[in-house]
C-alpha cells in the first residue's frame, strides 16, 4: 500500500504557502510549520475549519488572517460536526449545480485539546459516519493556548500548569482508536519527517471519506525547550520510540520508517533519556531519586506499545 503516492523531496514540493508572513505564533511554533506542509500538499482549493487553540490565537486580528485559504473558526467542541456540515453543503451544492468545479478539500486544524478531550465525541461521530474531510490533530500534548494545562494527550509524568507534580495518568491513544473505528485513512506524523507527512497528506487528499492525521508537535514554551529545537525534539521522540509513525486504511495497519525497524530491533533506539532531558517538563523526573525506575517504566510502556503495534500490523 501507499505506493501510488511517492515520496517528494522538500525542494520539489509546490511553492504554495498557506501560512502568510505575519502569523502571531511563537518562534519555533510547530503549528505554522505543519500547516506549511499541509498547504503544499492540499493547495489553495481548500477550506480550513479551526477550533480555539494557538493556531487560532495567532491568526491575526479581523479582518486580517495569516492563512491563505478560507477559514471557519468554530467553537471548541465543534470540529467534527462543522467540518461535516461544510463538506456536505459543498456536496449538495455541487450536485444541484449551485457550485461548479472541483470540490475544495475540507480539513480541520485542531489541537490535542480539541481532538482528545472536548471535541472527541464529534470527531469520533464524523469518523463513524465517514464524513468526507481530513481531520488534522496537531498534538503539542497540552492546552498550550490557555497556558499549558494538561490534556488527554499529555504523557504520564509531564508537568503542566494543572499537573505541577507531573501527570499521574497515561495519555490516550486517539490515532489507535481511529484505526479501530476502521476509518478510510489514519496516520501519525512528525515535523522531523516532513516528506513522510507530505506523502500522508497527499494520500488523505486522494481518498473520499473520513481521514485522520495526527502530527506530533513539540511546543517550546509548553515543554520548555529552545525555539530552535522543535524539529530536534520531534526527531528524538520518533527515534526513542516515544512517538510512533504509522498509517492505516480501513483497519489495516502499516508501520512506517523508522518506527518499524526500531520496533523490530533492526535499528537501535535512541536513549529515551536524551529525549526527556532535552525538555523541561520532565526535569523533576531527571532530578528524582526514582529517576531510573521512572525511565524504566516509560521504556517498558514504549516496548509494550511497539510489540502491540507489530502484532496489530499482522491483522
Amino acid at each position: 500500500m501507499n505506493e501510488a503516492i511517492k515520496s517528494v523531496k522538500l525542494a520539489d514540493m509546490p511553492d504554495y504557502e498557506l501560512v502568510k508572513s505575519g502569523t502571531g505564533g511563537c518562534a519555533g511554533c510547530p503549528s505554522p510549520m505543519g500547516l506549511r506542509i499541509v498547504g503544499k500538499a492540499l493547495g489553495p482549493n481548500s477550506i480550513m475549519v479551526m477550533t480555539p487553540s494557538c493556531a487560532v490565537a495567532s491568526i491575526g486580528v479581523m479582518p486580517k488572517s495569516c492563512y491563505d485559504v478560507p477559514v471557519l473558526n468554530v467553537c471548541f467542541a465543534s470540529a467534527g460536526a462543522s467540518a461535516a456540515g461544510v463538506s456536505m453543503s459543498l456536496d449538495a451544492q455541487l450536485k444541484s449545480g449551485e457550485l461548479t468545479g472541483e470540490k475544495p478539500t475540507v480539513f480541520t486544524w485542531v489541537g490535542d485539546g480539541g481532538t482528545y478531550d472536548i471535541g472527541f465525541q464529534g470527531i469520533s461521530a464524523a469518523a463513524e459516519r465517514n464524513d468526507d474531510f481530513i481531520h488534522f490533530c496537531y498534538n503539542n500534548e497540552a492546552y498550550s493556548n490557555t497556558g499549558v494545562q494538561r490534556s488527554g494527550a499529555t504523557p504520564k509524568y509531564a508537568t503542566t500548569t494543572t499537573t505541577p507534580a507531573g501527570k499521574s495518568a497515561q495519555k490516550k491513544n486517539v490515532p489507535l482508536l481511529m484505526l479501530e473505528q476502521r476509518v478510510a485513512y489514519v496516520a501519525t506524523a512528525s515535523l522531523a519527517y516532513p516528506q513522510d507527512f507530505y506523502r500522508k497528506v497527499m494520500k488523505a487528499k486522494s481518498i473520499k471519506g473520513f481521514k485522520y492525521i495526527e502530527l506530533h508537535a513539540p511546543c517550546g514554551p509548553g515543554w520548555k525547550f529552545a525555539s530552535s529545537d522543535t524539529v530536534t525534539l520531534g526527531r528524538l521522540a520518533v527515534k526513542s520510540g516515544a512517538w510512533l509513525l504509522w498509517e492505516g486504511e480501513h483497519g489495516k495497519l502499516t508501520l512506517n520508517t523508522p518506527t518499524k525497524p526500531l520496533a523490530e530491533g533492526k535499528m537501535p533506539l535512541t536513549e529515551l533519556e536524551d529525549y526527556l532531558k532535552a525538555q523541561g517538563r520532565f526535569s523533576h523526573v531527571m532530578k528524582s531519586p526514582q529517576k531510573d525506575a521512572v525511565i524504566d517504566e516509560m521504556k517498558a510502556e514504549i516496548r509494550r506499545e511497539m510489540d502491540f503495534m507489530l502484532g496489530r500490523e499482522k491483522l
Binding site: 475549519v49 468554530v74 460536526a81 462543522s82 461535516a84 456540515g85 451544492q93 464529534g122
Partner: peptide, 14 residues
C-alpha cells in the same frame, strides 16, 4: 451541540 455546529457551518458554506 453537533447539530448546531453542523447547520451553522453548512449555512456559512451557502
Amino acid at each position: 451541540h453537533s447539530v448546531m455546529s453542523a447547520v451553522a457551518a453548512a449555512s456559512a458554506a451557502g
